[in-house]
Computed example of a mutant assay.
Amino acid sequence: MAKERETTKKESSGKTLQAMKRKREPYLYLLPTIVLMLLLLIIPICMVVRYSFFDNVIVKKDPVFAGLKNYAMILSDKTFFVAVKNTLFFVGASVIVHMFLGMLFAILLNTRYIGINLKAFFRVIYVLPWMFTASVIAILWKMMMNPNGIINYLLQITNLTSSHIEWLGSRNFALFSVTLINIWAGYPFYMVSILAGLQGIPTDLYEASAIDGANAVQQFIRITIPQLKPIIISLFMLDFVWTIQQFALIWMTTGGGPINATEMISTFIYKRGFSKYQYSQASASAVILLVVCSVIAVFYVRHQRERD
């Protein structure tokens, strides 16, 4: 009897050890990613938040705790509010037109009136802007928007303008121009996502609605939009966060100029930190941007959970 009890105890302890190993295994697989996220994401964010509460860090050897002084200076800076206004226009126009163009091209590529080979050709053409890096896009559009570039040439031969327009060098056109470039570069993401959503909608819904007498517009409003709603909301939120953080395209086309005409929050933070060496104010600006993006991220996660 004693031997049997010992064997049963050994078996139960062996089972518990196996169970513990199974529970630990997923965390061991995740450990490299967790360490990388800790080193490259969590710790830098905590450092930036800490810097925002001190008098000019990095430049000074012994920075003094300044409380909310840096935030007050940023929120009373006229250039910051110019950057916020430009960013709101840039982000709002980009997100709305991205959705419109993405939906339009996705519907065109999903229609049954175009052949398979022609669809494949147009898919390659439409998705090309998404393949280019920010530096390639910036160089390409700077050449086209040059006063002697192709855009001014086409406008002149069609008698739409008689002068050479400084698209990226004029305060009147610079913000519109960089927004146009960003729209061109970003719409393929919407197009590909919406096209995947359209192809996942059952054709039975359209056939049943056609029998009931619904036309194409009614089918689009009553079937297509509700079926694509989860994808559209996710795209809006992701695009908002990505566009509000856009830096490379702005910096390589206008640098935030001329005279702050295209100054964005991202370029404002960069200039404060690496041109004026006011790292604490740059950190405070970055924390404000982080809070805005975090609010959108919370809504995105909640929407994903509801969708699941």
Rank of each mutant, 00 (worst) to 15 (best):
residue 113 Y to P: 01
residue 142 K to V: 08
residue 131 M to F: 14
residue 90 F to K: 10
residue 172 N to W: 10
residue 54 F to T: 12
residue 104 L to A: 12
residue 84 V to G: 12
residue 158 T to Y: 10
residue 118 L to P: 00
residue 76 S to N: 13
residue 102 G to V: 02
residue 54 F to D: 11
residue 46 C to V: 07
residue 99 M to W: 13
residue 170 S to I: 01
residue 51 Y to C: 02
residue 111 T to F: 00
residue 77 D to H: 10
residue 94 S to I: 07
residue 121 F to K: 06
residue 164 H to T: 00
residue 82 V to I: 15
residue 110 N to S: 02
residue 95 V to C: 11
residue 65 F to D: 07
residue 96 I to E: 05
residue 64 V to Q: 15
residue 135 S to P: 02
residue 50 R to Y: 12
residue 142 K to H: 04
residue 76 S to L: 05
residue 173 F to M: 15
residue 133 T to C: 10
residue 61 K to S: 11
residue 164 H to F: 04
residue 46 C to M: 13
residue 112 R to M: 12
residue 145 M to H: 00
residue 162 S to L: 04
residue 99 M to V: 03
residue 71 Y to N: 01
residue 119 K to L: 00
residue 110 N to L: 07
residue 145 M to E: 02
residue 44 P to L: 08
residue 73 M to C: 04
residue 136 V to I: 14
residue 93 A to E: 06
residue 75 L to W: 07
residue 62 D to M: 13
residue 126 Y to Q: 01
residue 163 S to K: 04
residue 108 L to R: 02
residue 51 Y to Q: 11
residue 66 A to N: 09
residue 47 M to D: 02
residue 48 V to E: 05
residue 112 R to N: 15
residue 165 I to T: 05
residue 57 V to D: 03
residue 104 L to F: 13
residue 114 I to P: 10
residue 53 F to L: 09
residue 96 I to V: 11
residue 111 T to Q: 04
residue 99 M to K: 00
residue 96 I to W: 08
residue 98 H to R: 15
residue 54 F to A: 09
residue 173 F to H: 08
residue 121 F to P: 01
residue 165 I to G: 02
residue 90 F to R: 09
residue 164 H to I: 00
residue 106 A to Q: 06
residue 66 A to S: 12
residue 45 I to W: 02
residue 130 W to L: 12
residue 74 I to S: 07
residue 87 T to D: 08
residue 159 N to M: 03
residue 136 V to R: 06
residue 129 P to H: 13
residue 170 S to G: 03
residue 64 V to G: 05
residue 45 I to R: 01
residue 52 S to C: 06
residue 97 V to K: 00
residue 133 T to Q: 10
residue 111 T to L: 04
residue 96 I to A: 11
residue 114 I to R: 07
residue 158 T to G: 01
residue 97 V to S: 00
residue 59 V to K: 15
residue 140 L to H: 07
residue 123 R to C: 08
residue 147 P to M: 03
residue 60 K to M: 11
residue 149 G to I: 04
residue 128 L to F: 15
residue 73 M to W: 05
residue 132 F to R: 09
residue 97 V to E: 01
residue 93 A to T: 11
residue 93 A to R: 10
residue 161 T to H: 04
residue 127 V to N: 14
residue 115 G to W: 09
residue 44 P to M: 04
residue 122 F to N: 06
residue 43 I to A: 07
residue 126 Y to K: 00
residue 168 L to I: 04
residue 115 G to D: 03
residue 89 F to T: 11
residue 41 L to V: 15
residue 48 V to T: 09
residue 169 G to N: 01
residue 107 I to V: 14
residue 50 R to F: 13
residue 71 Y to S: 10
residue 141 W to T: 05
residue 78 K to A: 05
residue 151 I to P: 01
residue 62 D to A: 11
residue 82 V to L: 14
residue 123 R to S: 12
residue 147 P to D: 02
residue 136 V to S: 12
residue 127 V to R: 14
residue 104 L to H: 11
residue 144 M to A: 13
residue 151 I to L: 06
residue 147 P to F: 01
residue 146 N to W: 01
residue 119 K to C: 04
residue 115 G to R: 07
residue 84 V to L: 13
residue 85 K to T: 08
residue 58 I to R: 09
residue 170 S to P: 00
residue 79 T to M: 15
residue 75 L to P: 06
residue 97 V to F: 06
residue 65 F to N: 09
residue 123 R to L: 11
residue 48 V to K: 08
residue 139 I to E: 03
residue 156 Q to D: 09
residue 120 A to T: 13
residue 134 A to I: 02
residue 71 Y to P: 07
residue 171 R to L: 04
residue 68 L to G: 03
residue 158 T to F: 13
residue 145 M to F: 12
residue 90 F to P: 05
